[in-house]
Design a protein around this nucleic acid. Structure first.
Lengths: 228, 228
DNA sequence: TATGAGACTTGATCAGCATCAATTTCTATA
DNA sequence: TATAGAAATTGATGCTGATCAAGTCTCATA
């Protein structure tokens, strides 16, 4: 693991929703206690089974969070971008990680220790509220994902995913897959072969149009959500 | 909705992990701000789409939390018992509920408003830590559930579920299904017919033995987790 | 710009499980 | 304890999507 301590934690603190509502002075105070670290593409930030004393916040780059099922199959849980954090389970519950966290590209993160965070929470209850908000939303997303797995067909999951990718303002009907079809398949709980076939089907039904390998135009949002 | 305000909130506050680490005086203080309410069997405590200002803590009884998928199918998310709480998404994020919460039997709950809770969090940061712990664990459970849906067969999910039911001390190898096969099917993302058939298969493989309708003896824990 | 490795596509096959339908068993309550 | 309504079982059938295999395409790098 390559660690470089430098002075640009500023981004981290300023970036994250859990801190960026604070005043300048307060953010400066937080910067005192965060540690900056970088990881090379492919490096693991943590592994399932390890303990840890820190919350990890992505500053620059992307991190792939995945799980192994009891039977050893890999499932992509989510992809972190700048401002997202991970490691809360091991941190708050003082247990081991259940995930693997892997840098997808060269990535810089900030880390804050349990003790420091606890101090901040006591001093600034607003931070706790932000954390509670974020975690509640994550529960919601994860439950929604579970519900989709258990009640919807692969077509529908893929179609919902494409619609979710559209920018919420609806300004653009062009979406770009943020990951390979292999990772997408893992995220959607299917295989790369099936993703490829289903994308083709959706195109044949004139619901989407492929613009390039990873770029698609959404032609008919309503019917995408109404498959079957 | 039948609401009875009475004086026995005591149980609620004493019961929940998020409060029961406090001193007697502190718990008394909290009792001042919680409201007790009862729901009859079958009553909805809240619906998806509603807003709400309260966190709901189960005092006595059971509450079924379920979701509807985009296409309208019902999925059981979890079942609350005494000490469990719900409503955090709508409360913390000031959005609408994404769930339905239904009393499975006559149930009494305590509710605490956003404003009161916020006050408590500021005064007692330890409560925030407990909430963060609980929510982190829930994320973990939900992600694990999603992973099981996406990577494991119905047999395996059912078998894992039975093993999870065993008391963690491993003192007893007899488990009792806490819900109907219909609800279990919904929880596991399958159909009642399939649950029935798979239970029969597991019994024919001598991995479990049915003692009564809802009671099973686990004969071979290791192989239950090693199906295939 | 050549080349190899990984990403994606396409085809053929087949197992798992949903669905529909018909009983049988359980259980709450009169 | 009788009985209706719900829950669970069992059977028959068909579809979805996994798997294996054999390509083709893309792109980073020498």
């Amino acid at each position: 693991m390559s660690q470089h301590h430098h002075l640009s934690h500023r981004g981290c603190v300023r970036l994250v929703p859990i801190f960026n509502h604070l005043t300048e002075e307060q953010m400066d105070e937080i910067m005192q206690v965060v540690q900056s670290t970088t990881y090379e593409k492919g490096e693991l930030i943590y592994r399932a089974g390890e303990t840890s004393e820190v919350l990890t916040i992505v500053n620059k780059g992307n991190v792939r969070i995945y799980r192994l099922s009891d039977s050893g199959k890999e499932q992509l849980v989510r992809i972190l971008g700048p401002g997202d954090f991970t490691g809360e389970l091991a941190l708050f519950n003082e247990t081991v990680h259940e995930h693997y966290a892997e840098a997808m590209v060269n990535t810089s993160v900030c880390q804050i220790s349990r003790a420091s965070l606890q101090g901040l929470l006591e001093k600034y209850p607003a931070i706790a509220m932000k954390l509670l908000q974020t975690l509640s939303s994550r529960i919601d997303e994860s439950e929604q994902q579970a519900t989709r797995f258990s009640t919807e067909s692969t077509d529908q999951r893929l179609a919902s995913y494409l619609v979710d990718l559209m920018d919420p303002e609806g300004k653009s009907d062009v979406v770009v897959l943020p990951m390979s079809q292999k990772n997408l398949a893992s995220y959607l709980g299917t295989t790369p072969e099936t993703v490829s076939r289903k994308l083709k089907e959706l195109e044949e039904m004139n619901l989407i149009k492929r613009l390039s390998t990873k770029k698609f135009k959404i032609l008919d949002e309503d019917n995408l959500l109404f498959l079957d």
